[in-house]
């Protein structure tokens, strides 16, 4: 049967700790959607909870704050993977609760 467990772990490790232009700290906080300062906080929260509402102006605020396109790219990827990971882990916990198995 298909199993993404190890692929998921390596994807998360790569975007959080692999080579990048955004600092590991901002990548981690974007992934967690916590402890962020403006304007990154607002954009990361939109990526996590209402991604289709992100606008050119949102990305513009990050550019004006001095972030490069590669840094914005990395922050957005970390935010998306972070929220999808929380959804995935929440669902796996519900599955364990329903079946009594880990």
């Amino acid at each position: 049967m298909s199993d993404i467990t190890s692929l998921h772990s390596s994807l998360v490790a790569r975007v959080l700790e692999g080579e990048g232009q955004a600092s590991p700290e901002i990548r981690r906080t974007a992934f967690d959607n916590e402890r962020l300062a403006e304007p990154v906080r607002t954009v990361v929260d939109k990526v996590a909870h209402r991604a289709r509402m992100v606008t050119d102006a949102d990305i513009g605020t990050l550019r004006k704050a001095g972030l490069s396109e590669d840094q914005i790219y990395e922050i957005v990827v970390c935010a998306a993977i972070g929220q999808a990971t929380r959804q995935y882990q929440n669902a796996l916990a519900a599955l364990s609760a329903a079946t009594g198995r880990n």
Binding site: M1, I4, A84
Partner: peptide, 20 residues
């Protein structure tokens, strides 16, 4: 169910990136 949740993970990442 596990297999379907793997699809959900993948597309909950991809959809966000496609939108942003």
């Amino acid at each position: 169910i596990k297999d379907a949740l793997a699809v959900a993970f993948s597309f909950n990442v991809t959809d966000r990136l496609a939108d942003v």
